[in-house]
Design a protein around this nucleic acid. Structure first.
Lengths: 224, 224, 224, 224
DNA sequence: AATGAATGAGTTTTCATTCAT
DNA sequence: TATGAATGAAAACTCATTCAT
């Protein structure tokens, strides 16, 4: 007869990590108010008091979970390698990576939505928030420079602004999948998202490779 | 001696509308779980039991508030007129309108986020959800057809898919303004959003007016 | 078959008073930390949320209970009448009254002890604390003046200081009855307290009627 | 490689004493329910399980802390020497000593209050409680006898009862200092307590040296 | 012998919902 | 019709106590 141990073994670091991932999932699937400390404890296989021991209170766990979401995406971005000789392909790769990360780690989008719903008070207090996505923007910056130098891309495209456009096109179809499905009857699944990634790339590259921007062209002659 | 009635009799329809708007604001600013029936009552200037009389329970109010958000945007869209002779300008106008609606009625974006966070169960049950944005898609459809006929736009662009791209570019900078501000230190204000609208138009029109899509072009010769 | 009403009838004022007395008893018998909101609710025959509705939180109930204790003793003091022609008897009456109030309303002493254990933060914030025992001190003041005028009492006895002495002699035997019983094996009961009241009166009157105070007398000649 | 022991071995007796003093301070400043085992451990510089090893459970620590309070006061009383030839001065010295002990070891008064709030169950079970203050009562007894023999004090004064009066006058101004300050605006500080000690002595000596007690004197003629 | 880690059993507090007038 | 008063059920948080190393 084997003794089933009633307590989990003493392992502070492991416990901390498990609580954090559990919290990330709970907060991102239920929102801040909807999240339940009991469920975080259950998901993490830990008793409730542990959570308070490790983190303090619900808001503090939330803040740590939010930071964890950023840390995870940064880890992904750091592994990204881009071909410096083919800026167009590099842009495609960036789009694929972004769409993929949003898709594979659904809690990232969800906890960002939660945070924005709450007015961003917590992210404003994450002291290292700014560094977090710096990796991606730096990569993007290099790609844009490379493309411009090769004469393939227009010049003077701001990397952060361009990142916002790219992120927009990847974020919205995923974050709003449920309402889009209901309202437009769109067939939202992995294939559809792949096609969205392709379309996003096309759109971004059309913009980057256009000789002149539409807003700078002369008004076309009206058809009479 | 006449009894002064404490309960001012109210116009039933007006009361309903006031509760609905209060609910919309409460749900969109606090999320579904974060919303408080007390606060909805207070915002609407009504007693709590009234709310239960008119709507049933919290979920029912939520569902009605969500529908109300869609109804409001449809009302806006119906007033939109587009110049049939200038498809480019029409696209610009659509972008401006969309960005503006998202900006002026912040609860629309916020309640959509809330609904998507919750998995879209409620919107799936709104029986007329599909009709709701039909107006806009129909307008868009006409614009795309017109542009194609004039030889200005590429052919075979799906209006719903194109709408998703347009909405993405308008939605994300607003819905995620707080995290963007914290992470990228972007100067998010009305001017910035106006510039985003311009950039979105340029991007969309580059895509629509491109002779060939980047993904269909032959791979560029590598720099040696 | 009579319907047992499951809810108490709607009567805000009565409910408030009942919660208050229940709180006074609970806090005074269990101390601040030992008091349980559940028990206050049960004693008052009310559900827990009512308590929070009426008072706010545990500390707020405590503060109101403390004030109530003072209000109750003031009500007693206001009914006290003293014979102006017989200052000695008046002092005896005051002692009897004080001892009696302390004995009959045990929560008064107990909540004062609780409050002093906690450092008096709450009483310091009761804005009308100072007026509360003013009645008794004023009565006492008149009695001392009367006695001085009749040549029975010494002059220049400060009424507040004298009150402290009187209260000391009445308070301690009651507040510390349990430890006194255990340590001195004293037969503490109503009779004993009556004798204490008599002894207190004798002591106070000896002091008031002494021609000279012991501390002002010449040192007695040492016995050789 | 030698393991540096994190657990410094400690002198068992010293550890016990430190825990005890920490417990005494914690219980007397927070009350029985308000006391926290964590804080006792922290104050004592010891881990929580240590406390359970040494004492058993919270109630057991409380009981030991209460006994410790009595033990400490007894230690003080044993050092007290009184001039047998000057009973008045001896009484004064007793009062000064008592007031001083109450003032210098504030936890004594506070833990007695706590114990009395709890109904004295613990002190009733301290098997040597009765001996504890025997020293003081014995000294007092000798002083009273001496005074009576010298013809300075009345006879037949019960030492325990007299002790209660003396203790009352010293205890209450200290134990209730916070409420007295708030209610009577008394300037409670060391000087004030010194004056209280003097007044207490005067009162007690007036009583002891009075030829007849007020309660045994004929009623004074009424003023007409 | 000593303690960091863990938890069961509460305790305070909140909130959607309903009754009684 | 309208609402102040009331509550059951659940949530966040605490704390004495014990296990495992």
């Amino acid at each position: 007869m084997t003794k089933t141990p009633k307590r989990r073994p003493r392992n502070a670091e492991r416990t901390r990590v498990e609580i954090l991932q559990a919290a990330l999932e709970e907060f991102s699937s239920m929102g801040h108010s909807g999240a339940r400390v009991d469920r975080i404890a259950a998901r993490a296989g830990v008793s409730k008091p542990m959570i308070y021991d490790y983190f303090g209170d619900k808001d503090a766990i939330y803040a740590e979970a939010l930071r964890e979401a950023y840390v995870q995406i940064r880890r992904g971005e750091e592994q990204l390698t881009l071909d410096p000789d083919d800026p167009c392909e590099a842009v495609r790769e960036l789009v694929r990576f972004t769409m993929d990360h949003f898709r594979r780690k659904p809690w990232f989008i969800r906890i960002l939505n939660t945070e924005n719903l709450m007015g961003g008070e917590t992210v404003a207090r994450l002291h290292d928030a700014a560094e977090i996505q710096s990796v991606l923007v730096k990569r993007l910056s290099e790609v844009l420079a490379q493309g411009a130098q090769q004469g393939v891309f227009r010049r003077h495209v701001d990397p952060a602004e361009f990142y916002v456009s790219m992120a927009s096109l990847c974020y919205f179809p995923i974050s709003n999948m449920h309402t889009l499905r209901a309202v437009f009857r769109l067939p939202i699944d992995d294939d559809w998202l792949d096609r969205r990634a392709l379309e996003a790339s096309d759109m971004l590259l059309s913009y980057l490779t256009a000789d002149t921007l539409p807003s700078e062209r002369p008004a076309p002659p009206r058809s009479t």
